[in-house]
Amino acid sequence: MSDKPVALVVGASRGLGRQIALSLASNNYAVVVAAKTASAPGTTTEDPDPNSPASTITTVTNEIRKAGGEATAIQVDVRFEESIKSLISQTISTYGRLDVLIYNSGAIHWAPVKNTPLAKFKLMQSINPTGLYTTVHFALPHMLASPTAQEPARQARIVVISPPIYSRFFRGKTPYAMGKVGMSVLTKGLAMDIQRDNAMRGRISITSLWPAVAIESAATQQFTKVNPEERNDLRKATIFGDAILAILKAGGDKVNGALLLDEDFLRAQGVTDFDQYSLVPGTAPRRIMPQQLPDLTVAEQDDEGKRYDSSAKSKL
């Protein structure tokens, strides 16, 4: 049993996931660094490019340990149920608890429907919404484990890397957006389940987070290699780590079901200096997300109508 809260970061080998793992470890979390890529024995590169394939769960775990933090590397392929089950099992057998789950794994192919092969579409759906659902499904029982006498008020937290829901997000990348928006639907829906379930309410919360400005990562490197000036419109990944920490410090009930943007949430917490996050000092990176997002609620929000639970085989 760990004395520290335990955070599982899925998709932590490089980019945003690596930074999230480092930020959590530097704030007294024991971190499970999980992803598909590990370094073969004897091949670990010291200080690899954090956005390159040389950055693995092995190198990230080594970074954390060298800085005095606590971390364990566990390989996972989120396309496969048994791999995810093994990840959760190993996490619990190693630390005896699971307090925070961050799901950052993702597959990207930005193209219209006619230019997206079925194989690419299936890959994105298996890693993005299905991988998330499977991970949450197997993690939930452990995250809802009975509080201890030492920590009677412990509240588990799930943070999903997925966007707010609005129509412009679909444009030009509908097959990708279908999965990412589906992840945000899970955030909204599970949050509603939590609110109406006495066994979950007050014991767990779920939040989605997305960048307001593009962040340096393995995904954005493909653009900066073609046009180095694209770096002027990027932020450092540290903004995302700081936003994750701010979410975890906020009351779970206040962020349960929220689809947040990193900059906007940090501003709401009193952060004013965003120049520190510019990848190129002195630049003002372009915002990629709308200033105002649609309210998804309706006037009849509290009218649940006739609810059915197929698992109970009876009308509720």
Rank of each mutant, 00 (worst) to 15 (best):
I247R: 08
S167I: 10
S167L: 12
S52C: 03
N104S: 06
P281Y: 09
A250S: 15
A30I: 07
Y103W: 10
E81Y: 00
K120W: 06
K236L: 11
S93V: 05
K36L: 15
W110S: 09
K66W: 00
Q155F: 00
T61C: 00
L101H: 05
T148M: 06
N62D: 01
D302I: 02
P163W: 04
L22D: 04
I84D: 05
A54L: 10
L118R: 08
N27F: 05
A34S: 14
L259F: 13
M178V: 11
P50S: 05
P285D: 02
R154K: 15
K180S: 01
S208V: 08
R65P: 02
P41Q: 07
P141A: 03
V76H: 04
V32H: 07
V10C: 02
D47L: 08
S93F: 06
S13H: 05
N227W: 07
K188A: 05
Q292G: 01
F265L: 12
T297P: 06
V9M: 13
A250F: 10
V226I: 15
Y133G: 02
S162H: 11
E304K: 09
P5T: 11
A107E: 10
A199V: 00
F240S: 09
T116L: 11
Q292F: 04
N51H: 09
R171F: 07
M183W: 11
A35P: 15
D77V: 05
R14V: 00
E304V: 08
V298S: 04
L101D: 04
S278W: 02
L24I: 14
F223W: 05
P294F: 06
N227F: 14
I108K: 00
D197L: 01
N198Y: 06
E46R: 06
S311P: 07
Q222H: 06
P53A: 10
P129S: 02
T94Y: 00
P175F: 09
S86H: 10
K114Y: 03
F121S: 12
E263T: 04
V60W: 06
G17K: 05
Q155T: 14
